[in-house]
Design a protein around this nucleic acid. Sequence first.
DNA 1: CTGTTAGCGCATTCAG
DNA 2: CTGAATGCGCTAACAG
Lengths: 356, 356
Amino acid sequence: MKVARTVSEKVSIKEIAAKANVSIATVSYVLNGTRNVRPKTKERVLRVIEELNYQPNDIAKSLKSKKTNTIGVIAEDVTVFNVPEIIDGINDYADGHDLHIVLTNLRLHKRVGHHYADVEAYRKYAANAVSDLMSKQVEGIIYVGIHPRDVTGLIDTRDKPIVYTYCYTQNDLSIQYNDEQAAYDSVCYLRDKGHRRIAVITGLMDSIPSRLRFNGYYKAVMEHQLPFEPQLIKVGDWGLDSGLRATKELLELAEPPTAVLVMNDVMAAGTLRAAWEKGIRVPEELSIIGFDNREFSDYLKPRLTTMDLPLHEMGYSSMRSLMRMVNGEPIEPVPMPACVMLERESVAPPNGVQTS
Amino acid sequence: MKVARTVSEKVSIKEIAAKANVSIATVSYVLNGTRNVRPKTKERVLRVIEELNYQPNDIAKSLKSKKTNTIGVIAEDVTVFNVPEIIDGINDYADGHDLHIVLTNLRLHKRVGHHYADVEAYRKYAANAVSDLMSKQVEGIIYVGIHPRDVTGLIDTRDKPIVYTYCYTQNDLSIQYNDEQAAYDSVCYLRDKGHRRIAVITGLMDSIPSRLRFNGYYKAVMEHQLPFEPQLIKVGDWGLDSGLRATKELLELAEPPTAVLVMNDVMAAGTLRAAWEKGIRVPEELSIIGFDNREFSDYLKPRLTTMDLPLHEMGYSSMRSLMRMVNGEPIEPVPMPACVMLERESVAPPNGVQTS
DNA sequence: CTGTTAGCGCATTCAG
DNA sequence: CTGAATGCGCTAACAG
């Protein structure tokens, strides 16, 4: 029976003890099942709890137990595409383990634009975030980056467990997907379709993903004895226009590639546009593989075949590792989450040739 | 001077009082500036604080002061496009007001798919979220929807202040953008470009945004005495294919429209594709206005002119209103945040005709 | 100006 | 099985 109590005043364990004619300890026992309580008493307490609509006060509980069941998440910027899915993974784990999330959003993109290479520019924001989280007595921290780069030394958590994800760090645990493997797999996939002249459009070459993905490309090309020519390697800047420009150059080659691995979907959209402008049909005359599985890649024409990033898994895995640290369990090395190829419409055998 | 203390054990106000030869009250005073303290004493205390690397315990502070400076955010699903920007707005306000955010992610999209109309399916998730947040003693709650619909009665916050955004509610404050005005403005914009036969592709007609936007369309059409013909009205389902199909039908009309207002960018991508398939040039032969300013709308060819949603403002404004409620200030009615037209490349005068 | 002290709501001894 | 008492870290009266 719901009683229409319009209370703002909190009812505490003490009041319910009084109304049920028991001590506060007894109430605590029935609440937590810490000890056996006579069924009749228990029921009486439970009823009063129901009637008064008692809600336990986690603050008081935490003060006593020194556990908050709360972890702090520092996101460099929640509006960047990779972050929400990672947070979703974090929440997925948290839901199943009675954990709560305090979210700090550094808003890096809006505050320092693309200058996230300049760590000093936002060190103070990060330090403040950590400090606030410490005061809130979080059990641990997860740091979610917006671009895979090395952030070693950015923050000091003073022995509070921390896990980094979507970025790299030297002295702490960081969870990243396997960039090199993904690029390697892409090239193998194209080769299996019958391609040999496979070009690559990289992102900025001073970025870790570009290097790693290029390693994967190089490794596959060497392993399968595919033609490795400098003209087939173009450096982009992650932006659409750079993909467009690079692709045009590729298409103007005496012997153009039949396929191109583009290191993100945004540049791949540029590739698609370049092909369209040049009158080159995709995938019949040019196969394209993108990277990131951005939502729009499914809306392009043709629908883009791309590498899906294991973002949810990264969030989930970060939480699992963090909680092991929190509980003092040994941190067993976890395998890097793998990207998975999403086969859509932008890849076909070269010149309509079918291969087994 | 930084002392390399590798402490896990928290240092408390008591310890620093002891080391500084003052009472704990004095430490509290210098910490909070609650009262004047002799400069010399103050400095001594401050030094010990620095040396011991003291971090105040917000949990204890909250227990005493009955204020947590924390607000709970219940997001129906952080992976849906509108949510991150709204959260960003919430953070923007929070950063400037020493407020913290506990984030609850209902993960609706993954849990109930598109059946968010069936409130019962996730009432328990929402109720749990509220209950947890109450226990955590949040000062108030912001509920962030993923589709503008009426969620009245979904949750009961028992007098804890709550503000809803990106959804509607009867008895509480909800912050939504002005849908009708946006559609109205779009049609006026097209008319100003010289268009008269303006078609519309709606979303599902049982949705609030579709109705509101249609109202705006209708109002502008009537006001400017534009042709109002049933053939110019197509009902979509928010998906790309429905936009494609609707557009084809429009293009096959004896007298096709010169412009079309599409109620979201995803369907507008379908419109673009339909035009392409029909060999109709955009914007020369068909002008298109989308809705939502999804990121990909800037990657389409031509770049899509669209209505930008004031998501950041909605988050910010929700927080401002919520904090007024928390502080017992009167809630003055706030104007609905307005959408703003993003002029890009998908609109031109009809038949190349120039108008003033 | 500074010290003493009483709780905040709860969990957990320790006695009955 | 139950009640009284203690204290978590801190703030704010109240007393000097």
